[in-house]
Design a protein around this nucleic acid. Structure first.
Ligand SMILES: [Mn+2]
Ligand SMILES: [Mn+2]
Ligand SMILES: [Zn+2]
Ligand SMILES: [Zn+2]
Lengths: 138, 138
DNA sequence: CTCCGGACATCGAATCGTTCTAAGTTAGGC
DNA sequence: GCCTAACTTAGAACGATTCGATGTCCGGAG
């Protein structure tokens, strides 16, 4: 797929300097940044960008379907530029999050309780290699 | 399994009036209350219970393994008295959450990235019957 | 080129869920 | 019945996010 910045231009989205650095902060594989991390990265490229603009822009990108919003156990939302169907492998200790492919489980009819199922989200909880090493327990 | 209140007594946990009404607020099938909802229920039974005690008690019960803490998309944590292995069916519109059984997906070896996998959490996103009816879109 | 209107960005205050702190209350072993 | 540790309390503090008021920028009409 085309880079985020290109897709946004093609949609006729006004690509200001602020929006550009925010979109650029989001590019890459296995990127699952919290808003504050996006703010830090954006500010490194354009110091006068404001926190409010980061939040506004992230919310707009989510509404446009260009980012996924993931609610993480630590209470901060993460923003994922990989909008393709995928699942996650998450370290329970440091929160590090990788994209993975796995077969979608399915929900037997008799478990559907009359709901209209739209999709499924799978999270594998784990210790990452660093956290296995440095703190086997704790 | 024995009721929560009974298990707590057997563990030698000091069962005060406040803790009792909080534990009782949590009983039932498909119960996934936010802290504030637990507070409302507890207060209905014992008006002078404080918000701090609700949070303290919920956190202790989670640490004891008597409740599961679930991070929900709306930013509020939910507390689940069903500590057996199970998954969830969640309405994307109203947030209603039901317990379901479904086969655990597994993560192919080549997708493990050296992580030590501990478990898997599956969430089926859906419209509940009420939300299908009252707001087909929106 | 200049002006205008709307879209955009900014700052700080406000809000929300949760945790912390300091002080008061209670339970139960002695 | 006392003493002490455990418990509860109200409210302050906190971190993440949203809101509101104000100021700036941009692109098209004239
Ligand atoms: Mn991802
Ligand atoms: Mn459940
Ligand atoms: Zn880790
Ligand atoms: Zn619903």
């Amino acid at each position: 797929m085309e880079p985020l910045v290109v897709r946004l231009r093609d949609r006729g989205w006004r690509l200001t300097a602020q929006r550009r650095v925010i979109a650029e902060a989001m590019t890459g594989e296995h990127t699952h940044l919290a808003a504050d991390e996006v703010f830090e990265r954006a500010r490194a490229a354009l110091p006068e960008v404001s926190r409010a603009t980061v939040y506004n822009t992230l919310n707009q990108l989510v509404a446009m379907g260009e980012l996924l919003e993931i609610s993480h156990a630590d209470g901060r939302k993460r923003y994922d530029p990989n909008v393709a169907e995928h699942h996650h492998l998450v370290c329970v200790r440091c929160g590090d999050m990788l994209d993975v492919e796995a077969d979608d489980p399915d929900l037997p009819d008799h478990q559907q309780h009359g709901f209209e199922v739209l999709g499924v989200e799978v999270t594998f909880w784990a210790y990452c290699p660093d956290c296995v090493r440095t703190g086997a327990n704790a």
